[in-house]
């Protein structure tokens, strides 16, 4: 009994020390925390406050700013376009890059060269890439030239609905390599033995992919989707350099809108829209967080119960052996 007490106390001591160590870890974070706190988090509180006030910062107006934003035609269009862009280009890029990663994995010998070839578009600055895209898709550009050579009618690609497609092509071109490398890393972490075992039992390529590869790529898929999402907002650069502040309606994104509000010093609209965007993105992220946590728990749970079952079976076998003996 006495001994037990001592060990109990010792555990508390270790726990306390552990906590002290963990607090020390916070020291490493302080520079970063000061910066993000000072530049983003604290001023964002001010953004929230201002979103309920008149432009001068005085005079409470309730939700008027929010109503103004939601009733704004340009805002609705920009939200629609941004959502449409992300909904099309994210699945497209993720699927295409996964396919390329799987294919490239089969062409083993040249995969080093392959990777650099696919990654190179990342290194091309928007200002340079745009020169190429203009030569290609301008009214007098190469694509139209080629079409006319075949007797077809060209069109003004960048100043029509097609600008949207050009922008998607640009996004896929730029990010395919990055995502491919991410997928390849995920693919290479799957043990080869699993495929061999499955093939021995007569599984085909497709079955291997569906039942071995895909389930084990969940974590990679999350990270890849997240980073592609972040990069999705960056196409604004190409869009801006090609078409300026007011591009064709089909590619008028939230980023354009914010910029134009900023130039017109339309601060109330900006603050209200920023708050709404943060709430929506935060909500999505939080939902995702809760879901993954839930799945992880469940998986761990099944694993644990599996282990218990296994242990139970072993014990049974042992007992049987003993009774036999």
């Amino acid at each position: 009994m006495r001994q037990r007490k001592i060990s109990h106390r010792r555990w508390i001591l270790i726990w306390r020390n552990r906590n002290k160590k963990q607090w020390k870890g916070l020291l490493f974070l302080i520079p970063s925390l000061l910066g993000t706190g000072g530049f983003v988090f604290l001023p964002f509180l001010d953004v929230i406050r201002r979103s309920f006030f008149r432009a001068s910062g005085t005079g409470f107006v309730g939700l008027a700013n929010y109503e103004a934003v939601l009733g704004n035609e340009a805002f609705c269009m920009a939200v629609k376009n941004t959502a449409r862009f992300l909904c099309i280009c994210l699945p497209l890029l993720l699927g295409l890059s996964l396919l390329t990663a799987v294919l490239a994995g089969q062409v083993l010998r040249v995969s080093g060269l392959l990777k650099s070839g696919f990654l190179i578009p990342m290194a091309v600055p928007a200002a340079s890439a745009v020169v190429f895209f203009r030569l290609m898709f301008d009214k007098n550009g190469w694509v139209n030239g080629a079409l006319q050579a075949f007797g077809m009618e060209g069109q003004d690609w960048l100043n029509s609905e097609n600008a949207f497609a050009v922008l998607i092509a640009c996004y896929v071109w730029k990010n395919l390599g990055y995502d491919m490398v991410l997928w390849m890393a995920g693919l290479s972490s799957i043990p080869k033995e699993q495929y061999e075992a499955a093939r021995v039992q007569g599984a085909g390529e497709l079955q291997c992919f569906l039942y071995i590869t895909l389930p084990q790529l969940k974590e990679t898929a999350f990270v890849t989707a997240l980073l592609s999402f972040v990069n999705g907002f960056r196409v604004f650069r190409e869009a801006y350099l090609i078409a300026g502040d007011y591009p064709h309606e089909s590619i008028y994104m939230l980023q354009h809108l914010f910029n134009n509000w900023f130039t017109n010093l339309d601060i109330q609209k900006m603050t209200a829209a920023a708050v709404m965007l943060v709430i929506v993105t935060g909500g999505v992220l939080l939902g995702n967080d809760i879901c993954t946590e839930h799945f992880r728990r469940r998986e761990e749970g099944t694993e644990e119960s599996g282990k218990r079952r296994e242990a139970g079976r072993k014990a049974k076998r042992k007992r049987a052996e003993i009774t036999k003996g």
């Binding site: 530049f39 953004v47 980023q255 910029n259 965007l277 943060v278």
Partner: peptide, 11 residues
């Protein structure tokens, strides 16, 4: 995740 244009206001 947030695009620059959102954090730009506080910046």
């Amino acid at each position: 995740i947030l695009p620059f244009q959102v954090t730009m206001v506080s910046g």
